[in-house]
Design a binder for these strands. Structure first.
Lengths: 366, 366
DNA sequence: GCGCTTCAGTAATGCGTATTAGTAATGCGT
DNA sequence: ACGCATTACTAATACGCATTACTGAAGCGC
């Protein structure tokens, strides 16, 4: 016969004197004069497997309330394998000092949608955070505390993501992410939005339009070009390769002479892709100014996106806005679905056309 | 004899087909030919209580690596009785649509400091969030999921906070909160900052200064007035009650006539308290403009704080800035200390004097 | 070769909750 | 009054990991 020596091993003396440890289901049970299992049943409001009388139920609820009982999420998760917690992981700080680059607009939607679905958010700060414990290797494994995790930013560690996807851990990337097979993501519909901008120009009467883009192959760029071309096609305009001006350094290559040449050829409108630097748009605006032209009188300009932060407002550029909060909400919806084991898919989120003052009817030419 | 019927109760069939369950320590142990306890010892790198030969250690490590073992954080936390999680609770949405009113600047510091200390953040969205399950009564108790919790905003529910404090749950309020006995808080030192502004004016040669404030008794207002008076005292200026103009509706009561009257009496500078509406400052600026006066030529103006968002920049107001990120960081430090059971106290955080273009030497008179 | 001390590792828990098998008490029909 | 169903619970376990008491084996001094 073995004497169990109850609770002798790890006498959990409160580390801090005076701190009352959180009440457990066991305490609630004692107070209500029932078993721990009953407490669990009452509190989880399960109808299967057992029935509880209203009177007992009430006693348990009262006891729980009076003790201020709150379930231990770790234990719940361990037992039930879920937590009602969604992770938000960004490799860079979620709240950078420079608000301009922050994920704030996305989080607005993420928070709202998560709250609406009864999830709380856990922010996992990427390993890159300055200060002490930088680059902890476990940063990514901690993520699994949540039921699923949202990844933000282009620096998400591919290898680890792959693993999680392979393990079936629910993961969603905010922003297009095709290269990672099986990684669910939500993104904005740059194609349609770009086509719409072209449609707008076409409706104003423009017949020859040129796209100015940088020389890289990010999906964001490719999508815009595709939308641009589709837009031309839809408007019945010509869309040969000469309609796209691609340059590694648009600010140098897009000279006023070049611009004039296009105008002489009958081009009346230009669209620039949006990038984080805004180089294409800057180049375009710069060249117009240098050439002594004015917009929208001499030519129309449009931006396939939103103007860079430092250029906001001044001349209101025609283009489209990315509905970041909606994107965040869509990501949460998708993630929640995957947590629930569904194979849901979120459609691309539509961008909003933003009329501006940089486009107008093409100038009359003899 | 009871047949244990191993793993029969909760056949953990993968909810989603194709989901490979993560390997456990038990699998690692089997592969390495040791016990689960040994795996735990090796992986946690503990030196106490047991010793492991290098050879065994290596076998375990290899096995873990080859299986891609990742510890289950929930289990770890359950066993260790801590979460490494700090809660952030704001009664209103943490990420409001209107960035102007957000806690963002605080969160910058909160996140950084938390990351540096190895904590992750859980955002508890206050009950006020729109959408479904609005005003869930458990919102506040969920907070206990974390090891401790930060409260933001003046709407923090007093009764619940009291309970938590009484229970010894580590809690810190961001922003002064004297009325709640025993509630630790961090705040900005408005007194010193206000005094410094007065000192600045005095150094410029101003001898009579008037404070314009609203008619409430929030600590933020009281502190500023106290600092104002202390500043006068320190500068050897007169600080009778007539030096403070207090009005429930400054925008109506602060007339151009009133302003001229003060000027005639020899007042050369005015300071306004900062409030969320910015009413006092607006009233002051409005009256100056209406009176056809110009600043800083005819009189000097200073603001005890930062200008309201919509007035940013234009004329750069002399005043001081609240170092919100520092405040956030200080709050986390205090909270971390309390979680660790220390009785730490954070001093007030100093505000930064912000020179501006609204103050200058007093005008020469007769 | 007898105690005694490391050394190396294992068995047996415990953390707090969810789940399910089982049980005692009662009701009901015949 | 017996069997069976229903009601209202409780006992016992599992979840995955950390911890610690304990066990065998080997080494050491005398």
């Amino acid at each position: 016969m073995e004497e169990p020596k109850k609770r002798s091993r790890r006498g959990r003396t409160p580390a801090v004197s005076g701190r009352t440890p959180r009440p457990r289901q066991a305490e609630v049970a004692r107070l209500a004069g029932v078993s721990q299992a009953t407490v669990s049943l009452v509190l989880s409001d399960k109808t299967t497997g057992a029935t509880i009388s209203d009177e007992t139920r009430q006693r348990v609820l009262d006891a729980a309330r009076s003790l201020g009982y709150v379930p231990d999420p770790a234990a719940q998760r361990l037992a039930a394998a879920r937590n009602n917690l969604l992770g938000v992981f960004s490799f860079t700080a979620t709240f950078p000092t420079d608000v301009q680059h922050s994920y704030y607009p996305f989080l607005v939607g993420v928070e709202q949608e998560a709250a609406a679905r009864g999830y709380d958010l856990v922010l996992f700060t990427g390993s890159s955070s300055g200060g002490a414990g930088a680059s902890r290797p476990d940063a990514l494994s901690r993520v699994r505390l949540a039921d699923g995790c949202l990844f933000l930013g282009r620096h998400a560690p591919v290898a680890e993501l792959k693993r999680m996807v392979a393990d079936g851990f629910p993961v969603v990337h905010l922003g297009r992410r095709d290269e990672l097979e099986g990684l669910p993501w939500v993104g904005a519909d740059y194609v349609s939005a770009s086509a719409e901008v072209v449609g707008h120009l076409s409706a104003l009467g423009h017949r020859r339009i040129v796209l100015v883009r940088e020389d890289d192959d990010a999906p964001a760029s490719t999508d815009r070009q595709q939308g641009f071309l589709e837009g031309l096609l839809a408007a019945g305009l010509e869309g040969g390769p000469e309609a796209v001006f691609r340059s590694a350094d648009p600010e140098r290559d897009l000279t006023p002479e070049r611009l004039r040449h296009w105008l002489d050829e009958g081009v009346t409108a230009f669209v620039a892709e949006e990038t984080d630097t805004g180089a294409a748009w800057r180049a375009l605006c710069g060249a117009v100014e240098e050439a002594g032209l004015s917009c929208p009188d001499d030519l129309s300009l449009a931006l396939l996106g939103s103007p860079p932060g430092d250029l906001v407002a001044c001349p209101q550029a025609t283009g489209f806005d990315i509905p970041r909060p909606e994107l965040g909400a869509a990501a949460v919806r998708l993630l929640a679905a995957r947590v629930a084991g569904e194979e849901a898919e979120e459609p691309l989120v539509a961008c909003v056309f933003r009329p501006g003052t940089t486009t107008g009817r093409p100038p009359e030419r003899h």
